[in-house]
Design a binder for these strands. Sequence first.
DNA 1: CCATTAAGGGAACTGGAGTCCTGTTATGGG
DNA 2: CCCATAACAGGACTCCAGTTCCCTTAATGG
Lengths: 207, 207
Amino acid sequence: MGSGRVQPRALRPGGRTTRVRAQVLQAAGDVLAEQGFTHLDLADVARRAGVGKTTVYRRWGTVAGLVADLLIDMAEQSLPRTETGILLDDLKANAQLVRRTLADARQGSLFKSIIAAAMCDARAASAMHGFYDTRIAEWVPCVQQAIERGEVPQGTDTHKVIRAVSAPLYYHLLVTGDSIDETMADQAAQAAVIAARAGVYMRPGHS
Amino acid sequence: MGSGRVQPRALRPGGRTTRVRAQVLQAAGDVLAEQGFTHLDLADVARRAGVGKTTVYRRWGTVAGLVADLLIDMAEQSLPRTETGILLDDLKANAQLVRRTLADARQGSLFKSIIAAAMCDARAASAMHGFYDTRIAEWVPCVQQAIERGEVPQGTDTHKVIRAVSAPLYYHLLVTGDSIDETMADQAAQAAVIAARAGVYMRPGHS
DNA sequence: CCATTAAGGGAACTGGAGTCCTGTTATGGG
DNA sequence: CCCATAACAGGACTCCAGTTCCCTTAATGG
């Protein structure tokens, strides 16, 4: 092929491309929060973002693809984590953070839309799994430290403990529509700690 | 208005109407399980049900409306409940029932689609809440009996205990796509019992 | 049985989501 | 500073989900 140096891919992440992505993701988040998953058409997103409709279709293709990219973006924006030195208090802080997120008008609606997308499309689903993996991993050290302090038994599955905190809150969102009160969030943390102490969340292969 | 007796509503629940509903709901469930929420168009449902497209649009109108009616139908089909006399065993049975439902190819996909619908539409959401209310209420007596036996403290919120069993299973479905193993279901039951015994799920106003 | 009228069926119509084509902008290398 | 081209913008086009209109079927009451 003569001089055909196969350029592996000459992407242009500079200026405009990045700006367009930011604008589109912002608009997509707005629409998802305001109108919901089913009312999201890409033309509308493009209009709000002040961007050509073709661009959105070319780069993201489908609603689910857009949600997937939005989740990747969200996962990168890490939230600060408290560290009190007492497992219960750390988990209460986590539970309250989740509660506030789901209670917030914009964030709450946005998460509902994201869940809807994940239930409909495999790509959006795995993006969401990645998002939660990231968020859960941020809080795992709390449990790890509790193990080292002897608060919970050796061989405890740290991820399971963190998941046990959020689970009742998300489930509540699912089965009853109403928002989660602070008491319930604290209860979720308490239940997680008590079960972890009792050795319910042991990794397989530990006594 | 002369002879205008205002007939409150002269519905015809006989033969055909009921049959059409059953056929349409069956088809709707099939499509939701096979194709998912986003790929559900009412014309396709009508074709599968062997029913006129207009009929489906007239009676149910939207995808969400169809899901709502499907949930009402599902809530009516009650499932048998075991009663062992030991709270942990009862809740393990419940957890395994939920696990099997979500693990089943058809049922699992169907539930994902239903959740998607509920996250998009208020009517579908309240239908789903009603469905879960029914299902949870069926298992509440297990906890009530445990209170009477003294297994868990007086003043325990029975509904919260039942919800605590399902919560980790649904959350797992959400956060990681993979199916739920039997160990995890048992753990969910164990955690619920331990937390309930410790008095985490007390109704407000009890010591 | 027959009359009445809910309820269903068929087919043409329509609006907007998604695609395609063509021209324009601005990024990055030299 | 300039060229090559990645990436964007605009508008015409297509196709089908959802609507509308009108006719047919069959449930109900007497």
